[in-house]
């Protein structure tokens, strides 16, 4: 399996490291034509304003949308914002891959960034230690969206059966269960 990781800016190296540890091939994506060799794509955390601008200037915006129509995409933090249908900030243009609405930096500035144990619905026996950094909030905008994890009653890990969006950073740490769950969507 070859996983593309959007590498315009942000935490792409951490995702590469996770997939390589899981025995997958990871490719850093900077150009539209690289997507044709990929089975899936990860949009990492970083700044959604910066990534919006870069995706528009190099043609990746349309190519990623097209790719998402036949391949699973996983977005984490800024990546989740970019995957959504709608975002509360005109500086960011979302790709409309998943029916979710996002609010940027919704848990507050860096001083409020946090870590917490959460439970994954697909593997509830052992908690997952999740890292939230200037994290967004995500609101499902249709009933087909399944909530895979919550924190304080807020959805933080969502899937529509094809794609996954996380408001936190599953690539930080050594618990790879969310990446493994994503890999199962690729089969």
């Amino acid at each position: 399996m070859t996983i593309g990781i959007l590498a315009l800016q942000g935490g792409f190296d951490l995702h590469r490291h996770v997939f390589e540890n899981l025995g997958q091939k990871a490719v850093l994506i900077k150009y539209p034509d690289q997507l044709q060799d990929c089975d899936g794509l990860v949009i990492p955390g970083g700044e959604s304003t910066t990534m919006t601008m870069q995706m528009h200037s190099n043609g990746l915006f349309d190519s990623i949308y097209e790719f998402s129509q036949s391949h699973p995409v996983m977005g984490t933090c800024a990546g989740a914002i970019l995957m959504g249908n709608d975002v509360d900030d005109p500086r960011v243009t979302p790709l409309k891959i998943m029916n979710i609405e996002c609010q940027r930096n919704s848990w507050g500035r860096q001083v409020f960034s946090f870590q917490s144990e959460i439970l994954l619905t697909f593997d509830p026996d052992e908690s997952f230690y999740a890292t939230f950094i200037r994290a967004p909030k995500m609101i499902p905008s249709d009933e087909k969206i399944e909530i895979l994890a919550q924190f304080n009653g807020e959805p933080i890990l969502l899937t529509d059966g094809n794609h996954i969006a996380a408001s936190f950073h599953p690539e930080i740490g050594t618990d790879y269960r969310i990446h493994e769950h994503y890999l199962r969507l690729l089969k």
Binding site: A7, L8, Q9, G10, G11, F12, D13, L14, G45, G46, E47, T50, C77, A78, Q110, V111, F112, S113, F114, Q115, S116, T131, F132, I133, R134, H169, I172, G173
Partner: peptide, 19 residues
Amino acid sequence: MKTGTFEVKKGLAEMLKGG
């Protein structure tokens, strides 16, 4: 829930990479 951990601090630095 913990704020101000080293992982959270380094995490922001990681997200600024390539920017």
